[in-house]
Design a protein around this nucleic acid. Structure first.
Length: 468
RNA sequence: GCCCCCAUGGUGUAGCGGUCAGCACGCGAGCCUUUCACGCUCGUAGGGAGAGUUCGAGUCUCUCUGGGGGUGCCA
């Protein structure tokens, strides 16, 4: 166990697909741990699978990291460029008798297996055949027949495995291509990693990691912390096939990085002071690996949304307008930056996602806002007084000298009072006539922003529609 | 099959042998209110089962059950 040396944690994604929220959480926990312990946070690109790895996926991972504000130290280590070091390690293992060459094809292994046996595993066929190197042969690690290997883990205490239950695993595939565990062990040693914080799916292969390390004579083991998996509503590990797991998709849907980061931190961890919504500084300060939960956590988008709504409300009006603009501009007919800056605050407490802003404010940026039929029926058709009210509002508004929210409110209230209506009732037909919907931002502020001419025009159009 | 991990309300969690089992999301009700939100108040619902240890167990031990992960020439 490593003691009294500076913390060096690492995140090592494999570039085989879009950046996953589970990966983002693992990265975040590593980052919080490193930042809170005056340590380094390293990044390693585990591109050892030649068929699945692609450069473009790494780009997405880095973009996601930057979005979440997870900055890393030192240069990114690319495993594909460390092949010689991995191979050198395999040669040392070969030389010391800890590994051997094997020419068994998967088909041959399967053919040797008894018909009633479960698939998988290796029978040790080549263990003592003394095969030499060849390009179509693999290198296997000779796992001890007896003894146990214990993984010391901060979140799970320890897990002990019987060596006899571990098969001789491949460390170099045919074509002299190093496998994940080997590369992982060699590079963790290379980068002087002190803390291996990763997903629980790696727990079962950790004895292999340890066996390799020990056979290579690498000295003190790193400290492990296996994080519980993120699961879907069916309690299965999140999968890119059936679940919404792409980190950047959430950004596209209008989630804020602060909300995502805060929410992710709470999956399997909770701050000691109990304040769930918290600053990144406090998270760093309070984060302890020993406080991390062992149970799998459900990724609950509803709660994420709640966090997002909170962080949206916390934005300054200017910051909110700037953040929402990209979601609005492409979706409306006539975007007007000045007008948007003015009305954006009206939407700020009314959306959970930035992508909802155009639904709320769209009527301000078009000549002819769509009329929502149910709203039309409810607020206009079902009242015998609405036509009259609209007509009166149109003419009063047309000559009203003080075109701003409060006076408009008072004027409208008085129109209602003549009919014995409260403002809540009175405003409804006007709102629907002008905005097309029964729900929306505060009406009189909206009318002020929209201007007299447009407002009156829309009221008249609604009257025509009633008449028709 | 074998190995390993996990188990508090619907969800995320707090709890470290004695608590009216706390908080947050969700859900419900009310208040506020120009609609809708925001905000505020109140409410809803919980320690998988069975043994054991103990004066006392969500908390410690064991068994079972359930769930998950691994078992690849993927990572």
């Amino acid at each position: 166990m490593v003691t009294n040396v500076p913390v060096r944690a690492r995140f090592c994604p494999s570039p085989t697909g879009p950046f996953h929220v589970g990966g983002a959480r693992t990265a975040l926990f590593n980052w919080l741990f490193a930042r809170g312990n005056d340590g380094k946070f390293l990044l390693r690109n585990e591109d050892t699978d030649p068929v699945r790895s692609e450069e473009r996926w790494l780009e997405g991972i880095l973009e996601g990291m930057r979005w979440l504000g997870l900055d890393w130290d030192e240069d990114i280590v690319h495993q594909s460029r460390r092949r010689d070091a991995h191979l050198a390690a395999s040669h040392r293992l070969l030389d010391s008798g800890h590994a051997y060459w094997c020419d068994c094809t998967p088909e041959a292994i399967a053919a040797r297996r008894p018909a009633d046996a479960q698939p998988g595993g290796y029978d040790g066929f080549c263990r003592d055949r003394g095969l030499g190197p060849a390009d179509d042969r693999v290198v296997r690690f000779r796992v001890p027949d007896d003894g146990t290997t214990t993984v010391v883990d901060i979140v799970r205490d320890e897990a002990t495995f019987e060596n006899a239950t571990i098969d001789d695993f491949v460390i170099v595939r045919r074509g002299a291509s190093p496998m994940f565990v080997l590369a992982n062990v060699v590079d963790d040693d290379f980068q002087q990693v002190t803390h291996v914080i990763r997903g629980e799916e790696h727990l079962s292969t950790t004895p292999k990691y340890l066996l390799l390390r020990h056979a290579l004579g690498m000295g003190d083991d790193p400290v492990f912390a296996h994080l519980s998996l993120l699961v879907n509503e069916k309690r299965q590990k999140l999968s890119k096939r059936r679940d919404k797991v792409q980190l950047l998709q959430y950004r596209e849907e209008g989630y804020l990085a602060e909300a995502m980061r805060n929410y992710l931190a709470l999956l399997g961890w909770s701050p000691r002071d109990g304040e769930e919504i918290t600053t990144v500084e406090k998270m760093i300060d309070q984060f302890r690996l020993e406080d991390v939960s062992r149970a799998p956590a459900f990724f609950d988008e509803q709660k994420l949304q709640h966090f997002n709504a909170h962080y949206i409300r916390e934005l300054s009006p200017e910051a909110f307008a700037a953040a929402a603009r990209p979601f609005v501009e492409p979706k409306v007919e006539r975007f007007d930056a000045e007008l948007f800056a003015e009305v954006a605050p009206l939407a700020q407490t009314r959306v959970k996602l930035l992508s909802e802003v155009p639904d709320l404010l769209g009527f301000l940026f078009t000549d002819d806002p769509p009329m929502e039929p149910a709203s039309w029926d409810k607020a206009i058709v079902s009242n015998d007084w609405s036509r009259d009210l609209l007509s009166e509002a149109a003419s009063e508004y047309a000559s009203f000298p003080r075109w701003s929210a409060d006076p408009l409110k008072d004027l409208t209230a008085s129109l209602g009072e003549r009919r014995g209506l409260k403002l809540g009732k009175t405003q409804a037909p006007i709102r629907v006539a002008v905005t097309g919907n029964t729900v929306g931002p505060p009406l009189f502020e909206s009318l002020e922003a929209l201007g007299r001419d447009v407002t009156v025009e829309r009221l008249r159009r609604a009257l025509e529609r009633i008449g028709a």
